[in-house]
Write a protein that binds this DNA or RNA. Structure first.
Length: 641
DNA sequence: CTAGGGTTAG
């Protein structure tokens, strides 16, 4: 035994950091490892990985010999901390102690290499130990390893091999593969795994069910996810969380909130993960009060320290118009991640406060945080909204040169937007021509949007031609060009677009507006009469209409058109219905109104401005791109008038 | 060996 432990004890001193002076004597060198293993298991369970490695060092120094019950825990720590250097050392300790014939040690080794992104080494362990090829757990570890290193193909071929060799497949095998189905292209594989799991009776395994549920979510097949969710008899916390965040990630905020309330009434207590999904939905919906209630609840439950939750709260407050609260949370954080910075920078960008967004970005760099792709998207968009064209171009040039972040298609579309809004349409077009990647719909769409602002019909036609090739069913582009033709009084153009839309069977995706009241989202589409207070809303609107006529001395507001819409009830703008609803129901204060799929038009802007003056009330409106503030008597936003 | 989480333009 003594002979066994000496050789690697010395080696370990070289790499396993600093060692305290050994307290043990030679006679203690034969100490049995049991108490050490118990301690290591405890630490591993509690997630104290760093400590468990320290204990392992102490164990070696004390002279206790590690055995097959030691290595799974230490290897797991290396995997969790991603320290391949110590992992490799442990591998040699395993070999020297003759533990390579233990299934648990082999799986831990394979998994350690995989989690350290060394799938080659993981495969070597598997390949060099004939025992592995007989064991389900080893196949599982290697399959999961490949999948985690985004090599789904290798995972699948190993899966085929194990079936060919007659190695039995279990629920863990299935989970390993299903967790790699991360986009719609993987859907058919995911569904055949679902079939396999039904046939093999893994249906009773909650982890397998949850994994399949999140597979459907990631494949953007939210209906199938819901169907599976409904069919799971013993839903656990993770099941609920997977479904709630599934709705949140797919932009179905109302569904997420409904399910959250259902979860609460069914007696399951939410945890931090639940609230992350709920807050993300509140952010997308602009559901300010629900968000505030959730924030209160988080602090009551003592979850306020969670970094994920703080970032979600920053995002929620910023997107619900409460930038001050978002900033306060951000400033109070003692540990800020790149995501925290991205959320707050995006918040300022959205509110048109590009100067502050840029200041924050520079401060982030000074703090020593390395920027990534998403934060550049955010800061470029902030520059674009605030008209900081040159600042934005500076960042675009610096991102690869100074930070090694390769511009992706999203960055190009931001810069096209940046140049386009500044009126530099030719530069934007040249940038598209010089892009190293094929432009996508968003890039041409950004150019098209810029053409609309600067009324350049010729270039718009070119951009439209390109964008429609790439996204033939995206209705927004047809509407955009059609509106440009209307503005330019080009009737034949309008008819041509309408014909195209009819031929392609595209129905107008109705924009909608909604407002949160008493914890519920009240949604309106144009001409909507389905709301229970519809009559009151319409009489409120005609009262407002009359008042506006008196106030609007310059006759900028098209009251004829609005009168016609009001009298027929056809086509009354959704935001007007929402505003009238707000006046009927909510107490005096700031209301946040969200407009989806639409950008606020001039008429709409003027209407809300007038109403906010008439009733001397603040409104915060968030449309497809940004915030608009209406502060009662004085309107701060002069974008249109 | 296995299941759920924050940020990303138009």
């Amino acid at each position: 035994m003594i002979r066994l432990l000496r050789p690697f004890q010395n080696k370990s001193r070289l790499v396993l950091h600093r060692c305290e002076a050994p307290k043990t004597t030679a006679t203690q060198a034969t100490t049995i490892p049991v108490p050490w293993n118990t301690r290591l298991r405890e630490l591993s369970k509690q997630g104290h990985y760093q400590q468990s490695l320290t204990v392992y060092r102490k164990m070696l120094r004390s002279g206790a010999a590690p055995n097959a019950f030691t290595f799974p825990f230490t290897l797991k720590s290396c995997a969790a901390l991603s320290i391949p250097i110590i992992g490799t050392q442990l591998h040699s300790h395993v070999t020297k102690t003759g533990c390579l014939c233990e299934p648990f040690v082999l799986t831990a080794l394979i998994s350690m290499y995989a989690k350290c992104l060394l799938s080659e080494d993981a495969y070597k362990v598997f390949d060099e130990n004939p025992l592995c090829k007989k064991l389900t757990v080893c196949y599982n570890a290697l399959i999961a390893g490949y999948v985690q290193n985004s090599n789904l193909l290798n995972g699948v071929s190993l899966f085929r091999e194990m079936r060919r060799m007659g190695v039995s497949v279990n629920a863990v095998t299935m989970v390993g593969l299903a967790s790699g189905c991360t986009n719609p292209l993987h859907m058919s594989l995911g569904m055949s795994l679902h079939c396999l799991s039904l046939k093999s009776g893994f249906g009773n395994d909650l982890a397998a069910e949850n994994c399949l549920l999140s597979m459907y979510v990631k494949c953007e097949s939210i209906q199938l996810a819901r169907k599976l969710f409904d069919d799971i008899p013993g839903k656990g916390l993770i099941t609920w969380n997977a479904m709630i965040s599934g709705y949140a990630q797919n932009g179905l905020g109302t569904h997420a909130l409904d399910l959250y309330y259902e979860m609460e009434s069914s007696g399951i207590s939410p945890n931090a993960v639940t609230f992350v999904g709920v807050l993300s939905s509140c952010a997308n919906l602009g559901a300010r009060r629900i968000g505030q209630e959730v924030e209160q609840k988080i602090s009551n439950l003592g979850l306020g320290f969670n970094l994920f939750l703080k970032n979600a709260l920053i995002n929620m407050h910023a997107r619900c118009g409460n930038l001050a609260r978002a900033r306060a949370i951000f400033d109070e954080m003692h540990e800020k991640s790149l995501v925290s910075w991205t959320a707050i920078i995006g918040g300022y960008g959205m509110h048109g406060l590009g100067d502050i967004a840029v200041e924050l970005f520079d401060e982030m760099i000074r703090t020593g945080i390395l920027p990534d792709g998403p934060v550049f998207v955010t800061v470029l968009s902030a520059c674009s909204h605030a008209g900081l064209t040159n600042k934005g171009l500076g960042y675009f040039a610096a991102m690869q040169r100074d930070y090694g972040v390769k511009p992706s298609i999203e960055h190009y579309s931001c810069v096209v937007d940046l140049l386009g809004r500044a009126g530099r349409l030719e530069d934007a077009r040249k940038l598209i021509d010089s892009m190293p990647v094929e432009p996508d719909g968003a890039v041409w769409g950004a150019l098209l949007g810029a053409c609309k602002i600067h009324k350049n019909v010729d270039l718009a036609e070119l951009a439209f031609h390109e964008v429609v090739k790439l996204e033939p069913t995206n209705i927004g582009y047809y509407v955009l060009l059609s509106n440009m033709y209307t503005e330019a009084e080009n009737l034949s153009g309008v008819l041509r677009i309408r014909l195209m839309m009819r031929e392609r069977k595209l129905k107008k995706d109705p924009g909608c507006s909604y407002i949160e009241f008493k914890g519920k989202i009240h949604l309106f589409v144009a001409g909507d009469r389905s709301h229970s207070q519809s009559d009151e809303i319409h009489s409120m609107l005609s009262k407002l209409q009359d008042l506006i006529k008196e106030l609007d001395v310059t006759k900028k507001y098209n009251d004829e058109k609005s009168d016609r819409e009001l009298s027929t009830g056809v086509g009354v703008h959704s935001e007007r219905l929402a505003i009238a609803f707000a006046l009927l129901n909510t107490e005096i204060g700031v209301d946040i109104l969200v407009i989806k799929n639409l950008r606020m038009c001039g008429d709409c802007h003027l209407f809300i401005k007038m109403v906010s003056k008439i009733v001397d009330r603040q409104f915060v409106v968030r449309d497809a791109t940004r915030f608009h503030h209406f502060r009662g008597g004085a309107c701060s936003c002069n974008d249109y008038w």
